[in-house]
Amino acid sequence: MTKTVYVAGVAALCLLGIGLHAIDAHAAGGDWKRGRVYYQKVCTDCHTAKAGGAIAPNARTMADWTAYLNADKHAKGKDSLRNYASREYRASVKGTNKAAEKYADVPDEQLFNDIRSFMLKGAKDGDSPASCN
């Protein structure tokens, strides 16, 4: 019996590993072009209008952006960064923002990964540093 539990446990852990790997691989391979559009038309538009200006991806390093994205703190910790990529947020602004409208149904995690992909590849030390132009 103990042997059966052991085998089942190992199998489950293997599956767990495969699953996590799949998620990780997916995160790494986000759609950077969709991320670019969302970053430009939602994040940058709002920052330009309400937060004193745009922040170019190449203004920070990959490590900076990774830490920022993982911390999930927006506006110096006042709220969650992920909130701004959420379906709920997109629904709230889609009347005035075409990007939010177009991507209204994209799963939250997927869109967040897309944005992550764009920011990391556009970082100062990324594969393709991106300015606001």
Binding site: L15, L16, I18, G19, L20, A22, I23, H26, G29, G30, D31, P107, E109, Q110, N113
Partner: peptide
């Protein structure tokens, strides 16, 4: 986990 990984396959 498998379901989560499957869900992440939308892309």
């Amino acid at each position: 986990v498998a379901a989560a990984a499957g869900g992440a396959d939308d892309g």
